[in-house]
């Protein structure tokens, strides 16, 4: 239970950093999708169990957004579902795999975001969105995913050891 509360705290902190801390530092410039990167790397490491945190992270972003509620969480979930095709891809390095995973999630989830906006009747400049948002994020997010993978892999290994220890004790 403590693990879940702690993880929720981290996801909430990342969402707040993405929406409040980074805008205060970089202004209107390009901001990395911290929630997307972290939760997607976690799914790449842990499999479908990580999807719960994708949902939670997306929902927290929904709470701070003017997009229709549910769009962020749905697009992140579907992005990770699409990225799961990498499970069958022969990528030897887990770090490269996590980075490619985040790249796929970035493309799919922001594409779905744009689609959701269009369905809501809001204007989306597709060319601008492609050249100034999605393409730069396609470089920035996977690059940061490498760092995130390094840190989250340690957390994952520690948790695995702890779970194995509990199993042996039982």
């Amino acid at each position: 239970m403590r693990w879940q509360v702690g993880t929720f705290g981290v996801v909430l902190a990342l969402a707040l950093a993405e929406t409040s801390l980074l805008p205060a530092i970089v202004g209107d410039g390009l901001r990395p999708s911290l929630v997307l990167i972290t939760t997607s790397v976690w799914v790449a490491l842990r499999g479908s169990e990580g999807l719960l945190w994708v949902f939670v992270g997306g929902f927290v972003l929904d709470l701070t957004s003017n997009l229709p509620v549910g769009l962020m969480s749905l697009s992140l979930l579907l992005g990770n579902m699409v990225a799961s095709i990498l499970d069958r891809a022969p990528i030897p390095s887990p770090t490269v795999r996590a980075s490619a995973w985040v790249a796929l999630v970035t493309v799919v989830s922001y594409g779905l975001n744009m689609g959701g906006l269009a369905i809501s009747g809001l204007d989306v400049d597709v060319v601008y969105a492609m050249t100034n948002v999605i393409l730069p994020l396609l470089v920035l997010n996977p690059a940061l995913a490498i760092v995130a993978h390094g840190a989250l892999n340690q957390v994952n290994l520690r948790q695995r050891r702890s779970q194995a220890g509990r199993t042996i004790a039982l």
Binding site: L45, R46, G47, S48, E49, L51, L52, V54, F55, G58, F59, D62, P68, V69, G70, L71, S73, L74, L77, L78, M81, G116, I119, S120, R160
Partner: peptide, 24 residues
């Protein structure tokens, strides 16, 4: 070592989809 919970993804997607439809 990766976990596989086949029902989790459809459930979460269904919840998010319902919330989105209600929101729209």
């Amino acid at each position: 070592r990766r976990t596989s919970r086949p029902l989790l993804a459809p459930i979460l997607i269904a919840i998010a989809g319902i919330v989105l439809v209600l929101s729209l």
